[in-house]
Design a protein around this nucleic acid. Structure first.
Lengths: 117, 117
DNA sequence: TGCTAACGTTAGTGTCAACTAACAAAAGGA
DNA sequence: TCCTTTTGTTAGTTGACACTAACGTTAGCA
């Protein structure tokens, strides 16, 4: 009834964690190995590895293996769905603003009571 | 070194919850009272009230009081910071993509295998 | 006043997720 | 083969948060 695509849900849950956003910013400008990413933080490599798994499962980063090393990089397509989600919300909210202006102009804004699905 | 504005953090944490996104969609197209919003879900009014508080604190909805009732509406400005965040991330990631294309053209990309789970 | 309706707030519970420590796996060099 | 490097995985703990039930608050009416 009110669910959205799993991709949006996964991406938002992944981005809700500040450390994962920091990781994403790190690999947005450069491709880095797991160890290099971990070195930028004060937590253990284990924690970073788990964060990278979450980001990968959410489609926000890609993984490239080279020997024992794994390089990670931000995946622009992963953010696309999120942008669409925000844009639709944005335009709906703007429509409401426009409607309110019209209603105000008509002097008819006592109490909105539209039926809820 | 890696923090972002509290507004972005609050907004993302608020949107990470599926029910709060549903509420936001509900008040994006119409202004609704707390009770009307609660009636659209199977949880108690208490839970909805707490969700509304989170959304309000995150700047994602506005509150209008009329008698004992409180009307809520999506706040487009609340999504603005989030859009900027996503856009900056997006452009950075695209820069990387462009850089990779250049590297490929220079014949210097031996084993690119960016598979996404 | 007394009563009711519409909400918010607090206390308490259960679940999920972020973290650490210890272990396992895979690749490469001596 | 042995050892090191790089990384992922599992078990277990702790803190955050979504939820319910009970109570408090404010507005309107007889």
């Amino acid at each position: 009834m009110f669910e959205d695509e799993p991709a949006v849900d996964d991406a938002l849950r992944a981005l809700a964690e500040p450390r994962r956003r920091a990781i994403l910013r790190l690999v947005a400008s450069d491709e880095l190995a797991a160890g290099e990413i971990a070195a930028a933080f004060d937590v253990t490599r284990t924690a970073i590895s788990q964060h990278l798994t979450v980001l990968k499962d959410a489609g926000l980063v890609s993984e490239r293996r080279a020997g024992t090393r794994r390089f990670y990089r931000a995946r622009p397509e992963g953010l696309a769905g999120l942008r669409e989600f925000l844009d639709s919300m944005w335009s709906d909210a703007l429509d409401v603003g426009r409607r309110l202006v019209e209603a105000e102009r008509a002097g008819d804004l006592p109490e909105a009571s539209p039926d809820v699905a």
